[in-house]
Design a protein around this nucleic acid. Structure first.
Lengths: 185, 185
DNA sequence: GTCTATAACTCGATAGAC
DNA sequence: GTCTATCGAGTTATAGAC
């Protein structure tokens, strides 16, 4: 009755709200409305479940990326759309995102795919956005990496402080800096 | 013989290298070269030790901040010095920094002081740096917040990918954007 | 797919000697 | 400040019935 995918969805949802921390297999299973035995049945082990959660988070990131990047919009609007969509997604899943990021930095088995997976797939669309803003070609790659880092850093700030207005204002500063440069070239 | 401070230093060092994760009090004590009984004696509980680790990390951050900000240097050099010093400190303690940041986002008891402590103390020196770069007064506060977020986001990238050259290039882009604006004002 | 039972450990914390 | 001993609870994972 309780299929694997339904269980996985509920796991991502629960862990996004409460964190992984050192939650036990049994407590987690109970929170998901099932038994520890069922988690073992579907995922093999506690670590197997975490590995599946990581794969699911990666999949959701790709979906978000595809949804955000609408190449038919004017480029300046794309920058703001990008920021808005990423913020919306992050307010739901951001705490899990940063916790898994920390796990990946520590080379924990289940999070290892994220070491490149949290960075590489995001760069090409941002490079396209930079080109749309007429960033000089030799600056496109570092500027895209800068924009990605800034988004992550601002989300880190937002999730810690909740200072939405101040963080939005900082994001707008980067937009201004990039747009203003393109007006001079 | 094994004083509280020596134990704390070793704990910060060990956790910086290996992460907190769900390490047990007993295993951690063993890694520190003492017994679980001694950790309880000095810190009261496992959580008491983590609380002390958080306070120590906060103290180290303040020390770093004081060391980095030398108001007698030319301002443009200060920006690069700032970045270099933060990178050096982060390569030692960055994984612990981001793990504790994730704990703070989840409102875990021991990490709660970090919710504002990872952001607020860093802003005034960066605001001073912005003023030194002739950023217009109404943009100083959001630009400082932007610079802080960018540093954190780039460190997040660096710790995941190890792409030192690419990350340095992205940091230099922000420097360029800020300096170039000041040349026009 | 779902359940109970249980093996085999490890946990945090305490007691109390030295 | 350091040690051993131990309590009571909770842990992952497995066995096997239904």
């Amino acid at each position: 009755m309780t299929g694997r995918q339904a269980l996985l969805d509920r796991a991502v949802d629960y862990l996004s709200r409460s964190g992984i921390g050192d939650i036990s297999l049994r407590r987690l299973a109970e929170e998901l409305g099932t038994s520890h035995r069922m988690v073992i049945y579907h995922f093999g082990s506690r670590d197997g479940l975490l590995t599946a959660v990581v794969a699911e988070v990666e999949r959701q990131q790709r979906d978000l990326l595809d949804a955000v990047m609408d190449p038919d919009l004017p480029t300046i609007e794309q920058g703001r759309d990008y920021w808005r969509a990423v913020v919306a997604a992050t307010e739901r899943h951001g705490r899990l995102f940063f916790e898994l990021g920390a796990h990946a930095m520590q080379d924990r088995e289940h999070a290892r795919p994220l070491r490149r997976g949290l960075i590489d797939p995001w760069l090409p669309p941002l490079e396209a956005l930079c080109r749309g803003l007429d960033v000089p070609e030799q600056d496109v790659i570092p500027t895209a990496r800068l924009a990605l880092a800034t988004a992550r850093g601002l989300l880190f700030d937002l999730l810690l402080t909740g200072d939405r207005v101040e963080v939005d204002a900082a994001a707008e500063q980067l937009n201004q800096l990039l747009v203003r440069r393109s007006l001079r070239s």
